[in-house]
């Protein structure tokens, strides 16, 4: 199954990249934008027909490698 994973910075963690983009939007005239946060989007195929097992595996993948849970949150969708 296809798995879509989003990794985002936790609230309160400084995001200099988000800030820079926010400033760029502002200078382009999009004055009503705020709180830009940049995250990562990943897609991967997992060959595991059992949904519960796939779910547990993707969670382990996120905890172990895909996110650093000191500063990042993750969420995913199994399709």
């Amino acid at each position: 199954m296809k798995v879509k994973i989003h990794v985002t910075l936790k609230q309160g963690i400084l995001d200099p990249q988000g800030k820079a983009i926010e400033h760029a939007l502002d200078s382009l005239g999009f004055k009503n934008t705020a709180n830009m946060r940049v995250g990562k989007y990943m897609e991967v195929d997992v060959n595991e027909p059992d949904r519960a097992k796939a779910d547990a595996q993707v969670k382990a993948m996120c905890e172990k490698l895909l996110a650093n849970t000191v500063i990042e949150d993750y969420r995913y969708e199994l399709q």
Partner: peptide
């Protein structure tokens, strides 16, 4: 840091 042999993480430099 990533290996957990030291505590904490590195973020991007504030200046980018």
């Amino acid at each position: 840091l990533e290996a957990g042999l030291l505590p904490g993480v590195m973020l991007r430099n504030t200046s980018l």
